[in-house]
C-alpha cells in the first residue's frame, strides 16, 4: 500500500491522555486529487494535520503510520517531509515585502536572475504583477491568500495540507480562491488534504471524503 506515489494514512489514530481523539483512519490521496476531512471543532482535524507535518505535541500518542511518495513520514523532521501547509490565516511575514515572502519559499539553489524570474512568474500567476515591493499588510484578503499559496508552492512540496484556508474569506472570494488552490494542486499533481467545515468544499474537491465525529461523544 505504501508503494503509491500519493499520501497514505494507515490505521492512524491519535490519543491524548488515554482518550481517543481520532481514528483509526485509513486514507489514500493520489497525486492531483483533493481529499476532504470534515468534522466539528475538537474532532482532532488540526491535530491530524500537525501529525502529518511533524509538529504534533509530544503529549499525543500516535498509532498507525503515514507515507508520502512511498517514504514513511514518522522518522523525518518537519523540514524534510516536503509537506506544504496553508492555514486559515495567510501568515505572510509582516517583516518582509510580498516578493520577499515568495523568495522565502524558494530553495536556495536558485540564484540571481533565475530567482527573480521565478518570483515574477509566481506574482503574475497570483495576479500580483508589480506587487513585489509591497508590504503584505496593504494587500486585500484574496491577494494575501493567493500569495500565501504561491509561497508554499515555491518551496516545492510533495503534498499539500489545507487547514480551513477558505473559512475567513467571504462567500464569493471563497469560491474563487478555492478554485485557484484546487487548480494549482491538480496541475502540480500534489496529493492534497483539505480540512473544512463547509460541505461546498467537499463537493468542489471531488475526492475521497471522510467525516469525523466529535471526540469523546
Amino acid at each position: 500500500m505504501s508503494a503509491t506515489s500519493g499520501l497514505v494514512l494507515e490505521r492512524v489514530a491519535l490519543r491524548l491522555g488515554g482518550r481517543r481523539l481520532l481514528g483509526p483512519l485509513d486514507l489514500t490521496v493520489e497525486p492531483g486529487r483533493v481529499a476532504v476531512l470534515m468534522g466539528p471543532s475538537g474532532s482532532g482535524k488540526s491535530s491530524l494535520l500537525a501529525f502529518l507535518c511533524g509538529t504534533l505535541d509530544p503529549a499525543f500518542v500516535v498509532e498507525g503510520s503515514a507515507w508520502l511518495g512511498g517514504r514513511a513520514l514518522a522518522p523525518l523532521p518537519p523540514e524534510r517531509r516536503r509537506i506544504g501547509i496553508l492555514f486559515q490565516d495567510d501568515l505572510l511575514f509582516p517583516h518582509l515585502s510580498v516578493g520577499e515572502n515568495l523568495a522565502f519559499g524558494l530553495p536556495s539553489g536558485l540564484r540571481g536572475a533565475e530567482r527573480r524570474a521565478r518570483i515574477e512568474a509566481a506574482l503574475a500567476d497570483a495576479g500580483l504583477q508589480g506587487f513585489a515591493g509591497r508590504d503584505p499588510a496593504t494587500l486585500s484578503g484574496g491577494q494575501r491568500a493567493r500569495a500565501a499559496l504561491l509561497r508554499t508552492l515555491l518551496s516545492e512540496p510533495a503534498a499539500l495540507l489545507l487547514d480551513e484556508p477558505f473559512s475567513k474569506l467571504d462567500a464569493d472570494l471563497r469560491a474563487r480562491f478555492r478554485a485557484f488552490v484546487f487548480d494549482h494542486a491538480r496541475r502540480q499533481r500534489l496529493p492534497t488534504l483539505l480540512v473544512t467545515h463547509d460541505p461546498a468544499d467537499a463537493v468542489e474537491a471531488d475526492g475521497p471524503c471522510l467525516t469525523l465525529d466529535a471526540a469523546g461523544d
Binding site: I85, F93, F104, T152, P157
Partner: peptide, 9 residues
C-alpha cells in the same frame, strides 16, 4: 508561523 517555515524546509 514556525510550522509554515519548517514545512517549507
Amino acid at each position: 508561523t514556525l510550522t509554515v517555515a519548517r514545512c517549507m524546509g
